[in-house]
Every structure is written in C-alpha cells, then in structure tokens.
C-alpha cells in the first residue's frame, strides 16, 4: 500500500449501495447452447457404455490400445479402425481427495477423482472417473477397482452410465 492511501482512502462499496442502485450494476448471462457432434470414435464409445461395455481402439501400427477410442493414433498418425471391448476393471494410476465441489463449496467427506488404467488398454490409458465405497484414507495408487454401472434401463449413453469405480475385494 502506498502513502496515498492516507490522503485518498477511496470509497468502500457496501451491499446496500448495490441494493439502492447507487452503483452501476449490469447483470448479463450468456445464452451459449452447444450440441457437440460426438462423431465416430466417441459416438461408438458412448453407445458401448449404454450397453455396459467399455470400448477402446487399437492402432495396428504401434499396437497401442487406447480408451476412449479415437479415429487417429496420436503417436504414429495412423487411422485406428479396430474397436475392442475392454474390461470394466482397472488400476488407479493417480487420485486426489477433493474437499471443494465444482461450484466451490466446502466438503467434509471428499470426492475422489481418479484416473483408472483400464484392463485391456495399454499402460497409461484409462478413464477419468470417481471412486466411491472406499475409505478416503485407504485409497492408494495401484489399487484395483471395478466399475459400478447404472442399470440397463437407466443408461443413456453417457460417461455417467458408470456411476463410479469401487475397490475390488481381493480374494
């Protein structure tokens, strides 16, 4: 703060000033509506989820299997035309304990976002989803997890057709 603050202290604004219309206040809201075409690769992926299947695509050149499927392999720029059903189990690559919501509210019980390397996909290829039915203190990198699906009637062809992933009980 400069010395000027003493001679020019400024004018603090109060909630009342806004209510009384003393402040120029302009509320606006963008009506931005979009209908993204999902296309071949993501369209197939979402159709797979509706059927309770996680689809990946395979590159015949570098032999990577990625999820979600793509039309082009980003590593060798060859078309990915082979779609393969993967398992709905996987391994936690990384996770976080999130104590603030999407719209910035404090939480006592954290949400647990996690990247899950899906069984059948190449290493480092997975799904970004959330973990539940697990003690936050016991989640760990390398933990084995499995998808918990919505019922077939409830599924709509969306990433939320998988409700969450939960730990696989090791037997």
């Amino acid at each position: 703060m400069t010395e000027n603050i003493r001679s020019f202290p400024g004018t603090p604004l109060s909630e009342q000033d806004f209510e009384e219309g003393k402040i120029l206040f302009n509320y606006d809201e963008l009506n931005g509506k979009f209908s993204w075409d999902t296309g071949i690769a993501i369209g197939s992926y979402l159709a797979g989820l509706k059927n309770g299947v996680i689809l990946g695509s395979r590159c015949s050149t570098c032999r990577k299997t990625v999820v979600p499927p793509r039309t082009v392999c980003e590593w060798c720029f060859r078309p990915m035309q082979e779609y393969v059903p993967l398992h709905d189990t996987g391994t936690v690559n990384t996770f976080s304990l999130c104590y603030v919501t999407w719209d910035m509210k404090r939480l006592t019980d954290p949400q647990i976002p996690a990247v899950i390397e899906i069984d059948g996909a190449s290493p480092l290829h997975g799904i970004m989803h959330l973990l539940k039915e697990v003690d936050p203190q016991k989640v760990h990198i390398g933990m084995r997890v499995k998808a918990v699906w919505k019922s077939a009637e409830e599924r709509t062809g969306a990433i939320t057709d998988i409700q969450y992933f939960k730990p696989v009980k090791e037997v």
Partner: peptide, 25 residues
C-alpha cells in the same frame, strides 16, 4: 453430425499431408 470436430480436422489433415508428401510426426 457423423463426424466430431476432431474427425473433420483429421480428415483434412490426412489429405493435406498426403498432398504435400509429408509425415506430420
């Protein structure tokens, strides 16, 4: 509606690279 924006771009890129005879990688 049949292609995502990524697929539209890919289609154009493949043609442009083939036309120039270059491998983007």
């Amino acid at each position: 509606a049949d292609l995502s924006y990524k697929e539209l771009i890919y289609e154009s890129a493949v043609k442009a690279y083939a036309d120039a005879g270059v491998d983007p990688r």
